[in-house]
Simulated assay, not measured.
Amino acid sequence: MANERLLIVDDDADLLGITTEACRMLGHPPLTAPDAGTALRLLEASPGLRLAIVDVELEVRWGGFRLGERVAERFPDVAVVFVSGYGSHAGRPPGEEKTEVLKKPVSLGRLKALLDGHLGPARGSGA
């Protein structure tokens, strides 16, 4: 692991791959995790991470919002952004009713704005 500052967590391998390639193209190469357990291990091992893009619909035992709560508790310097195929219509647990959920796949323009806003503009990305 080099200087990655971004983690993408999605159990859909195709969407994880698409988002990963888009982030690389925008100059922000991510670490990736197919589940919450892997995500937490990567966060522990990668103190430079600053942003986690988390799918709301993870495995049954761990929903994306539960992972978000754990990240906030253990890694307060890491911002969490939620994504779902349902977008703003995604189900939310009590207390998360107003949490923004981006519709996936996230457009390239929206993804660039999100990454630049949380991580700063990428150097030499050409994007």
Rank of each mutant, 00 (worst) to 15 (best):
L42A: 07
E69Q: 14
K112D: 13
S46L: 06
D10G: 09
A2N: 09
G37C: 06
D116K: 01
R92Q: 15
H118P: 01
L49M: 10
E73C: 11
G37R: 12
G48K: 09
V78T: 10
R66F: 02
S84I: 02
C23F: 08
G64Q: 03
V9F: 01
A52N: 04
E59Y: 04
R66W: 05
E97A: 15
G48F: 03
L108V: 15
E73N: 12
L26S: 04
P30I: 01
L51C: 05
D11I: 05
F65W: 12
L114M: 10
S84P: 04
W62V: 02
A90F: 06
L102Q: 08
L16I: 07
I53P: 02
V78A: 04
R92A: 10
E57A: 15
F65T: 00
A39P: 02
D14E: 13
R24F: 00
G120P: 05
L16Y: 03
E21K: 14
L108P: 05
L108H: 13
S125C: 12
V60R: 14
C23D: 01
G17Q: 09
V81N: 02
S125V: 00
R110G: 02
V71S: 00
K112V: 05
G95M: 11
L111G: 01
E59G: 08
S107F: 11
V106F: 09
V54H: 06
G63P: 00
A13H: 12
P29I: 03
R50T: 13
F65H: 09
F75K: 10
P34M: 09
R41G: 01
R50W: 09
K103L: 15
I8P: 00
K98R: 15
P105H: 07
T38Q: 13
L15V: 11
P93C: 07
E4F: 04
V56Y: 08
A79T: 09
H89A: 14
P76H: 01
R92S: 12
A127G: 13
G126Y: 04
E100D: 14
G37Q: 12
R24N: 04
L6W: 01
L102T: 02
S46P: 06
A45N: 06
E44R: 14
K112I: 04
R110F: 10
R74T: 11
